[in-house]
Computed example of a mutant assay.
Amino acid sequence: MGHALQPFDEDKENTVSNPIYLALDLPRLDNAVALAQKVRQHVGGLKLGLEFFCAHGHHGVHEIAKIGLPIFLDLKLHDIPNTVAAAMQAIHVLQPSIVTVHASGGRAMLEDAKAAAGEHTKVVAVTVLTSLDDGDLSRMGVAGSAHDQALRLADLAQEAGLDGIVCSGHEVGAIHKRWKNGYLVVPGLRPAIPGVSHGDQKRTVTPSEARNAGASVLVIGRPISRAEDPAAAARAIEATL
């Protein structure tokens, strides 16, 4: 096992004031590092998802952490409580600022995940994936709308003592009203810029709309990572907040 990472100490003012986390899910580690270096002055943190973690593991996280920004491990852990707790303990050494679990894993799993997390790690529960809509949920046997399900799962996460949740921009305002101090993460954002595709995201809003509705963290990927000039794209989005 490698040595524990030292807490980041660079760009502290920027990470506090800038809620943008860049989704850094690239297949090659050198490309991910290069992209992060380009935008580091214009984002508040870096999100590493399942694709990145499966490809690069602890080593990849260590390399990205050298850039000096907070790390968001978006692993969406979902298993029996004991297994999720063990997984959470296994990533202590990486000192992530944020880790995701699935709210649908149930209260016991959520409680054990939070209890096993590092002291400085926020544990947030994914409510309804932004790739799902009402029709998808209906086919899965979930009654009500995506909005209703997100609120139910947000209530469960709050009752379980988590730090916050992940939801689409369509639900963040309603959840913020119910959970004033919740740490609310909103992915699937698409800036109001000509030519920006929604891709596989079905329930999207703009970064400024999500921020104004109460989002704590704005997760943005392709609009920055696939831009001709990623740093300029990040600056442009930051300027709208």
Score class of each variant (00 low, 15 high):
A143S: 14
V84C: 06
A150W: 04
Q149H: 14
V43H: 02
A4G: 12
E228M: 13
H92T: 08
I98F: 06
L241S: 03
E111P: 02
L110I: 09
R222E: 02
G135P: 00
G164I: 09
A113K: 06
A233Y: 04
L153R: 00
A160Q: 01
H42K: 10
L22E: 00
I20A: 03
N31R: 13
G45F: 05
E63S: 13
K47N: 11
Y183V: 11
I237D: 01
I224T: 07
P191N: 03
A116I: 00
A236E: 15
A87V: 10
V185D: 08
K114H: 04
P191L: 06
D200T: 02
E51H: 11
I224R: 01
K66S: 11
E228F: 06
L46E: 03
I67Y: 08
G68E: 08
A234K: 04
A150N: 04
E238H: 12
Q41N: 15
H147I: 05
Q89N: 11
S131R: 10
H92I: 04
E111R: 12
E63F: 06
L162H: 07
I175L: 10
F8G: 07
A146Q: 04
A233P: 01
S17L: 15
M109N: 02
M140Q: 14
Y183K: 11
P27Q: 10
L94C: 03
